[in-house]
Nucleic acid binder design. Sequence first.
DNA 1: TCTATAAAAGATAAATTTATCTTTTATAAA
DNA 2: TTTATAAAAGATAAATTTATCTTTTATAGA
Lengths: 148, 148
Amino acid sequence: MISKACQYGIRAAIFIASRHSDGIKLNIKQIACEVDAPEAFTAKILQVLNKHHIITSLKGPYGGFFIEEFQLEQPVINIVNAIDGLSVFKECGLGLKQCSASHPCPMHDQYKIARDALQNAFQKTSIRHLALQVNEGSSFINNLVLKN
Amino acid sequence: MISKACQYGIRAAIFIASRHSDGIKLNIKQIACEVDAPEAFTAKILQVLNKHHIITSLKGPYGGFFIEEFQLEQPVINIVNAIDGLSVFKECGLGLKQCSASHPCPMHDQYKIARDALQNAFQKTSIRHLALQVNEGSSFINNLVLKN
DNA sequence: TCTATAAAAGATAAATTTATCTTTTATAAA
DNA sequence: TTTATAAAAGATAAATTTATCTTTTATAGA
């Protein structure tokens, strides 16, 4: 559906947002660890998010990643856009170059319902809202550790 | 959403179904051409569909691919299952290994709506139904050719 | 039985995505 | 200003997906 890079990016952004508080910065090691993502790969992804002003970073000692107040309001689709682009929400389910109501693939109508629902899911949800859920303990951004 | 291989497979199956009539067989060249898919790759994909009994093939002269009456009734999700598997319809939107109502990711509910809609789209549609639409001329499985 | 035909099977290559490692740059504090 | 720290940037590697090419197998008809 969306790429692994994008999934890592969303989880990381939610984690950073969940720790939002004045002056707090998180480094890649912490972030990658908390969201169960490969560290170096996550670093690359956070670079992209920073360039798109979805999160903010600061180099040097006491540096790290954080999210600013105004950034918390952004919809998650902004992260998808930064990493994967918005083509998932536009493209034909059967891979036709052009597929629309006027030249539809045979699955167009049904597929569009799912595609729109997906877009809706990412569009209507803010980073703040998701972080809040994690802080409440009602949802999670890391994998369960199985006990023996 | 679904792989290119799977998209080619669905388009090819629909095309074969749209030409269904006693004794008619289509070869890979025709099929690949009609659905705008790479020929050799399409051949590989049709092998898989044949193994899963979604279409039927016959080697040798006057051989080729065709679909049998009983195969026409199958839902398109059978093709997805044969090529990509059903994991798209089960996996977490944020890539968590376990994500369910009891241990949800923060997007679980919204994402599940989209994921279920997608599954529904493929589950409720038969190959016959899609082929019919193509034969009616109300939908298409190939790319528009742009005129200059 | 021989020949031609078309798919199956197998091997390999190209492209993309995922992932890691090294070097450079920015920055805060001593 | 020097040093330590952490991200940015750049290079490279591994894995997966997409795609192609070659050889083998099945089959119909002459």
